[in-house]
């Protein structure tokens, strides 16, 4: 399981991460950020394989992919 952390002040909602995602697990959210743009969100957390392509391709250093670790483990 992976999660994405998004820096909402830096993301400009350009969708480069969404259309490059090889597993198609990202999509554009319907909500607005403080900058007035639609940010990407991870919809299929099980499908995401943690390839970090969105993190490497983000022109604004806004996305970080992290592995979700259970607190009880």
């Amino acid at each position: 399981m992976h999660v994405i952390e998004l820096n909402e002040h830096w993301c400009k909602g350009c969708r480069v991460c969404v259309f490059h995602c090889p597993t198609r697990s990202l999509r554009i959210a319907s909500r607005f950020t403080m900058r007035g743009i639609h940010p990407p969100e991870l919809v299929e957390a099980e499908r995401c394989n943690g390839c970090r392509l969105c993190e490497l391709l983000c022109p604004d250093f806004a996305i970080t992919v992290m592995e979700a670790v259970s607190v009880n483990a």
């Binding site: 002040h9 830096w10 993301c11 400009k12 909602g13 350009c14 969708r15 480069v16 900058r35 391709l57 983000c58 022109p59 604004d60 250093f61």
Partner: peptide
Amino acid sequence: MFPTIFCDGCGLGN
């Protein structure tokens, strides 16, 4: 300096 001034779809940030 952030966020960057580049347009949507520009690759300069990359």
